[in-house]
């Protein structure tokens, strides 16, 4: 648990994750109000990283549920261990137990596999449950998740209602691939993480890529920041900046020149048309 907003900030900084006040407020409120935190923002600004950092800062386990199209309850919540049940039935055959006994046996707690959601609810002490890229899942899954998120309990037909032994910190991330229902949004604390400001990005680069020269880091961040203003199809985000910084360090670069940027710009930009657009104007984009 976090005692105050500055404490959130300090403890996450310790985990090498720099945040601004709004993020700190959101994390603080989500943890203390015991509400899920819904994080949106462009790809690569550190949404998943935030969840990892929070888990580390709270010194607890991170349970991750990666969403994709077609994800259903059996993969998110729990599944009967079919093979084990079969084995038991066959074993019981040899001992000539009655069917009634066998039936009572095979639907017990020994025979299910807990999936992330159930694991998080059953954990001894509060864990961080990261539901990653929830926007990729189907709408049915989203409404199924509602029950879990609102009361921290789930209903399993054979077992009844499972209540959380400890209430996990739930973090949902989304790339805005689709809209969520109002019912889900209503239950969450909402946070939009945007591209960082110049100063914050510079600090992040220096923190994560310690080997980089001071002057170089300033110039490269300035370059990335002006790229973002250009209206590209996919603007570079922090993770790309970091990749680029590591590349430059690896290449032993001291300063940015046109040739170097032209050769490495494909690390920052992922679309051919973006690369073309930038290459045309590269001279003007590099600060003197």
């Amino acid at each position: 648990m976090f005692g105050s907003i500055p404490e959130v900030k300090a403890r996450l900084t310790k985990q090498n994750y720099l945040i601004n006040n709004r993020v700190a407020t959101a994390v603080y409120l989500a943890v203390n109000l015991q509400k899920p935190l819904l994080i949106e923002g462009p790809a690569g600004v550190g949404k998943t990283q935030l969840a990892k950092a929070v888990a580390k800062a709270m010194d607890t386990e991170l349970i991750r549920l990666q969403c994709y199209e077609g994800l259903d309850e059996s993969k998110a919540l729990f599944e009967w261990n079919y093979q084990k049940q079969l084995l038991r039935i066959q074993a019981n055959h040899l001992t000539e137990k009655t069917w009634e006994e066998t039936k009572a046996n095979i639907f017990s707690e020994d025979f299910y596999l807990a999936r992330p959601l159930l694991k998080a609810l059953r954990a001894e002490r509060p864990v961080v449950l990261l539901v990653d890229e929830l926007d990729k899942s189907d709408e049915e899954f989203e409404s199924f998740l509602l029950e879990a998120l609102s009361d921290y309990q789930v209903s399993i037909p054979e077992l009844g209602t499972v209540k959380a032994t400890s209430i996990p910190v739930v973090i949902l991330t989304s790339n805005n691939y689709r809209d969520f229902s109002d019912a889900l949004k209503r239950r969450c604390i909402h946070l939009y993480i945007d591209y960082p400001s110049f100063d914050r990005e510079l600090a992040i680069v220096r923190l994560k890529v310690p080997g980089i020269k001071e002057a170089l880091s300033e110039r490269m961040v300035a370059f990335v920041q002006s790229l973002r203003k250009m209206g590209l199809k996919k603007a570079p985000s922090i993770s790309e900046t970091l990749d680029w910084a590591r590349t430059l360090v690896l290449l032993g670069a001291d300063s940015l020149d046109e040739e170097l940027v032209t050769n490495t710009v494909n690390i920052l930009l992922k679309y051919q048309q973006d690369i073309k657009k930038v290459e045309e104007r590269i001279g003007g984009l590099l600060p003197e």
């Binding site: 407020t25 959101a26 409120l29 209503r186 604390i189 909402h190």
Partner: peptide
């Protein structure tokens, strides 16, 4: 910030 994260969901 508190108002922003609790009231604005889009």
């Amino acid at each position: 910030d508190s108002l922003a994260v609790t009231m604005v969901k889009d």
